[in-house]
Design a binder for these strands. Sequence first.
DNA 1: GGATTATTGTAGTGACTGCTAAAATAAATT
DNA 2: AATTTATTTTAGCAGTCACTACAATAATCC
Lengths: 179, 179
Amino acid sequence: MDEALGTAQRLFHERGYDAVGVAAITQALGINPPSFYAAFGSKAELFDKVLERYAQCALPIDRLLAPGRPPVEALGDLLETAARAYVADPRESGCLVLESARAGGDPQSAAKAQAVKCESRERVRSFVAQTHPGQADLIADYSVSAMSGLSAGAREGWTEERLVAVARMAGQAIAAVLA
Amino acid sequence: MDEALGTAQRLFHERGYDAVGVAAITQALGINPPSFYAAFGSKAELFDKVLERYAQCALPIDRLLAPGRPPVEALGDLLETAARAYVADPRESGCLVLESARAGGDPQSAAKAQAVKCESRERVRSFVAQTHPGQADLIADYSVSAMSGLSAGAREGWTEERLVAVARMAGQAIAAVLA
DNA sequence: GGATTATTGTAGTGACTGCTAAAATAAATT
DNA sequence: AATTTATTTTAGCAGTCACTACAATAATCC
């Protein structure tokens, strides 16, 4: 079951929600459409489960943003780790959540992705608020925006060096603000 | 004719290339499908012309990146101007080029958008290379990535204050690198 | 083993897509 | 005014989409 979610995740990540038809999913899973709908309900429901699964195993946010860790170091690490993850597998470039959140196709899938995105933003905001409450919102916005930019670069095919260099540079702005 | 391109641009910008059918375009233009194909060739060709039109009138890059202007000031101005433009009309949020470049739907439209995107990146790179040749590539990558992040925020519905604050913060990284 | 239940495979639903052939109308030329 | 040319309208083509009714198969239980 979780294996099926994994293959579906790979498909969605590679081609995007709208470009993946249920025919491609059922074929990759080795089942037929009726079995698919009996198991997952619908394509949208499957995507919801895939997104939640991805949000948990894509980045170790709890470890990166561990309470008490110096914010500048932690957030810089977050950006660089994200950059490396976004290009780790060229067939699954970028962030599935961030890319799905801005896809214009199905509004339901985009809404779900945005919900997960906001959740992650809140993680960053509450982490920063522990030490710099006055700048927590700005830093959270900036971090999400920077990661979205990194995801776009990854999806365009940038190398790990290019992306990590941009991520490190983005981290300097955080250092400047929190100094 | 240019008026027709304008309305088509508005449609594509609001809903994205794939979500806009030729039926919506012909209806907005008050013509029928055959007239549409006689005038524009195809939906993809129309989108190409729309993209080129947009690239010219979206941002005054020539003025912002005028040769001789201090790079830190010019690039910071570019980011902030982009942020304001991305939220100027809530129905046309974000950057049409950047958003279309990462859309997973039609590969032809995405390829064209990426070509325009690379063109803009080159404008930034050559501008920076005049004063800081060693960091031109990094700055160009960073600028495009930051603008892509701003476009994502705009598309999510961020207010102008939020987006401009993030843009200013992004500019600090450029100042730090070019110092 | 025979009857019932659950699962799977086949085939197809209606609604949409970009796009176009031919019919009906308007315009222009002789 | 009559004929030819250009343009618009109607109608529909072939394809794909998410999704499902029904039939054939496999598994379970008495």
